[in-house]
Design a binder for these strands. Structure first.
Lengths: 213, 213
DNA sequence: GTCTGCTGGTCACTAAATGACATATTAGAT
DNA sequence: ATCTAATATGTCATTTAGTGACCAGCAGAC
C-alpha cells in the first residue's frame, strides 16, 4: 500500500520544503545551497537530493499542498451555489489553520520573487500545471462531462490561468507595494476573474442534466 | 549597440538549441550530457554553459523563436480581419521556410515528450509564459487599451493557455496516435479555442474607438 | 599597423546530483 | 517479545552540471 510510510515521507518532504522556501526568500536561490537546506531542515544532504530532483523543486510540495487544498475545497462546492458564495465560505479566515496561513504568507513572498528568480518560476508553473489537472476533474464533474472532453480541458486551462494571474497580481501588489487585501476583496477579484475566464458555465448553480447528452 | 555581435550570438545559441532538442528526443534528457550537446553542436562545453543556465533551458531558444514568430504574425493582424482569416493566411504552408517547418516538427516531438520528461516541461512552460507576455501587448494594441490593464493581462493569459492546450493536444495526437492534421484543421481548432478562451472581443474586426476611454 | 571590445577556448574549481553500501526504524508475523 | 522484511536515512565516493579566471583570436575604429 502507498499508505503509512508514504504519508510520513510526504510530511518530511513538506517540512524540508518549508525550510527551503524560507531560505530562498531570505537569501535568494543562488545564495542557498543544498547543504544549507539540509542543515536548516535537520536532515542529511543526501536526503534532500533523495526528496527533490533539483534545488528549485524543493518548493514544489509547499505550492502543491496549497493548490490541492484549494482543489479540495472546489470539489466540495455544492451544485446550487455560486462561485462567489462558495469561495466566500471557504476563505473565511477562522476556517484556516495557523499552519495554512503561514504557508500562504510564504507562498506570497515566493511569488513576489518570481521576476528576479527564473528558477523559481519553473516550480511555480509546475504547481499551476498540477492545479490545472485537478481542475479538469472538478469542471468535468460539475458539468457532468467527461474529463477527456476537449472543452473541459480548455476550460480548466483558462480558469487555472486566471487563478494564476490573480495570485501573481495580488502577491506582487502585497509585497512590492505594501498593499493589503481583505478576504472579501480577494474572493471578489478571484470570482470575477474566473467568471471572465471560463468558457463553460460552471460558476453558477448547475442543474442536473436529466435528459441525456 | 546590441546589434551585430548579439545577433550572431543568438544565431549560435539557436543552432546549439536545435542540436540539444534533437538529442533530447533521440536519447532523452538524462541520456544527454552537456558534453554531448557541445560535441554535436561543434562548440566547447564551456560555451554551452555560457549560452544556457541549465541543460533543460537549452531548448528554450528553439521554442522562443517559434513563439516569437507566431507573436509577430499576430502583431500584423489587420484590424478588419477575423482571427480565422488571419491565421489561415499565416499558416499557408508555402509561406513557411523549410527551416521553420523542421523546427515545427522538432517542437511537436518535444511536446510529446513532456509527460515523461518533467525537466522539459519547465522549458515549455517558460516559453508559453514568454508568449503570454507578448500577447499582452498584442491584445492591448488591438483593443486600444493599456498593457497594464488587468483585463488585458487576464485575456492574454487565458488565450495563451488555450494556444498551449491546442499545441499539446495536437502534438500528442500526432506523435502518440499517428494522427495527421491539415493546416485548415489546425487553424480551425486554434481559432475556436482562442475564441472560447477570450474574455475580450479581439477575435473579430475591431472598430477604432473614436470616442474616449 | 595598434587599440579596443567582444566572443570562444582551456583549465581549474565549486556545487548539484547520483550510486553503493551500511545502519536504523518500523510494521507485521509468530 | 523477537524475528524478519521492507523502507528510510546516513556516510562516503563519484559523476555531472555549472562558474571563474585567464588567454587567444577576430572584428571594427583610428
Amino acid at each position: 500500500m502507498t499508505s503509512r510510510h508514504s504519508i510520513e515521507r510526504d510530511d518530511a518532504r513538506l517540512a524540508v520544503s518549508r525550510h527551503a522556501a524560507k531560505l530562498f526568500v531570505d537569501r535568494g536561490v543562488a545564495g542557498t545551497s543544498g547543504d544549507d537546506i539540509a542543515a536548516a531542515a535537520g536532515v542529511s544532504t543526501r536526503t534532500v537530493w533523495r526528496y527533490f530532483r533539483s534545488k528549485e523543486s524543493c518548493v514544489e510540495p509547499l505550492l502543491a499542498r496549497s493548490a490541492r487544498r484549494f482543489s479540495a475545497q472546489l470539489r466540495e462546492w455544492p451544485r446550487d451555489t455560486t462561485i462567489e458564495a462558495h469561495l466566500g465560505a471557504c476563505f473565511a479566515l477562522d476556517r484556516q489553520a495557523p499552519q495554512d496561513i503561514a504557508d500562504g504568507v510564504l507562498i506570497v513572498r515566493l511569488i513576489a520573487l518570481l521576476p528576479r528568480e527564473p528558477a523559481l518560476r519553473t516550480a511555480w508553473l509546475m504547481a499551476c500545471h498540477q492545479g490545472e489537472q485537478d481542475l479538469i476533474g472538478i469542471v468535468a464533474n460539475r458539468l457532468d462531462r467527461s474529463p477527456g472532453d476537449f472543452d473541459v480541458k480548455l476550460c480548466a486551462a483558462t480558469v487555472a490561468a486566471a487563478i494564476r494571474v490573480i495570485d501573481e497580481t495580488i502577491s506582487m501588489a502585497a509585497v512590492s507595494h505594501g498593499q493589503t487585501f481583505t478576504t472579501a476583496e480577494v474572493v471578489e477579484r478571484l470570482a470575477q476573474a474566473i467568471r471572465a475566464a471560463s468558457p463553460l458555465p460552471f460558476c453558477d448553480p448547475v442543474v442536473p442534466r436529466i435528459f441525456g447528452a
